[in-house]
Design a protein around this nucleic acid. Sequence first.
DNA 1: GAGGAAAATGACAACAATTAACACAAGGCT
DNA 2: AGCCTTGTGTTAATTGTTGTCATTTTCCTC
Lengths: 151, 151
Amino acid sequence: MLSFSSQYNVITSPLGDGLHKDGKRLTPQRLKVLNLFENIGSGKHLSAEEVHEKLVKSSSKVSLATIYRTLRLLVQMGLLHELELSEGGHRYELLSNDNPDHHHLICIRCGRTEEFENEEVLKAGKVAAKINGFKLIESSLNVRAICPNCI
Amino acid sequence: MLSFSSQYNVITSPLGDGLHKDGKRLTPQRLKVLNLFENIGSGKHLSAEEVHEKLVKSSSKVSLATIYRTLRLLVQMGLLHELELSEGGHRYELLSNDNPDHHHLICIRCGRTEEFENEEVLKAGKVAAKINGFKLIESSLNVRAICPNCI
DNA sequence: GAGGAAAATGACAACAATTAACACAAGGCT
DNA sequence: AGCCTTGTGTTAATTGTTGTCATTTTCCTC
């Protein structure tokens, strides 16, 4: 039977490359988490708990602790983006090239989120950082609102 | 000895007025929390735990549970503003007239925050809400960055 | 000013989200 | 194949926050 490494090493995934550079390892769990985000599309925002549920459902059991560890790792690697909605914990989304810099419109009642882009916002962040001598990491505009269904 | 109510009722504080309209009551604890924010100035952002510490230090003991309850109340009343910095819990700041609509530049290393205003950002939030049929509550731009001291 | 209904407080239990510890398993070098 | 190091799962601990409930307080009415 094929071992895990012989099955995947040949493909030299971007994930594998990124990990190996740092002495970190490509594991099935890490792949599963990243694949989940890739399959689900780049507009979705999942909590750690939701990632866990979805993986359990697809009979890919990954422990919750590992999911937390993996999410943090993938954020550090720049593959995922973490966003904090005031209500109930952190969410994660895939950071892909065709979904570059965007902001979120969040319904505070049902949690529905819509994305939008805005050049001015990006600029505002840059200017503020420069004026204060900060090194910019990212700027995210969170618009808290109530969606049509919840009004 | 003067009772609490006879000591303060005459002043008819804005806090008292706002509370009484709703059948809610003016208590020394609520005054202490609000006073703390007023004394500390409107550019500061405190966590519930920090509010608790400061009140204990000034020998004004208010229980932590009450602080959480009071902070939520003051936010609902529009006297405080709640902001969520990704790192470590919620922060609260005084919402005063001379410090209207502003955004935050946050150092992810030391937590230092600077404020700035930007009309375009405000507009961006409005537009996004309108396009999607959402009812806007507030839009806040959080710029995550590293401050000069931490670089 | 006293009496009483309604609301608020404090102390503490309960919770949810997240992290730490550690024994065991697995990845990736040679 | 074998070894060293990193990663995983399990479970316990921590943190931030909320619920419960008995006791205390506010504030309205007389």
